[in-house]
Amino acid sequence: MTSPASSSSLLQMANCTIRFGGLTAVSELNLSIGQRELVGLIGPNGAGKTTVFNLITGVYQPTSGQINFEDKSTARLNPHQLTRRGIARTFQNIRLFASLSVFDNVRAATQLHRAHGIRDALWRGRSFHDSEKTVETEVMELLEVFQLGKHRDKLAVSLPYGDQRRLEIVRALATRPKLLLLDEPAAGMNPTEKVELMKLIQFIEEKYQISVLLVEHDMQVVMGICRRIIVLDYGVKIAEGNPEEVRKNPKVIEAYLGEEPV
């Protein structure tokens, strides 16, 4: 097992445990993600991967343990506050805003970096219009980068499945995160789409210079792009290392790869 590759750490989870009633979903988890690092989090169904996401994003508070983001504790912060600090996410089951257009889905995510609020929306002065223009340009640029520009006025939920997944990632990027959490982005995709997704994730990491934590069920995707992989089983970290090390780890093979040899 190797220690984190990069010099300064962006996110640090120390001895995090969360229990729901009698069930310990995550137990004594230590995890760190460095600047500009692409980390994979894998494990069988029910291993607690999404729970880790919910801990990092403030949906749940850990029963015990400490989470630091940029060396500051995230305890008692709400999801929206953590998004402001630079943690963005997608969801396992796509959660786009159903009544909003593609454009508005992304636009809504830009509000947190604007100084304009209720008063400006009512007064509608020059600075408000300028700011709305800037938002529009910014959103359209993002949409164009991900080839969604042509769909701007369609209802988000009317897009094909793969585009919806992509839109969710774009929406998360619009919050200008330092850490992007992707929850099973390859779920329900066919092999070609998976290859495209891998390229997309690598592209995001390079273009926006951010860290990515990828929860994934699909071994091919994780092994293909992550330089460091963490394996969870029953809420416990059983292995950590580069794809080669993880692949050879007997515990991993037993817990996870055994089902599906790679």
Binding site: P79, T83, A88, R95, H116, A121, R124
Partner: peptide, 28 residues
């Protein structure tokens, strides 16, 4: 006017999905 602004889109986001809204930095 309120709803037709970037700020006001937040109301619709809360209507559609509170969890996703808060993940976008919107305080439901």
């Amino acid at each position: 006017g309120l709803v037709n602004s970037t700020y006001g889109r937040g109301f619709l986001c809360v209507h559609d999905d509170e969890v996703a809204a808060s993940a976008m930095g919107i305080n439901p």
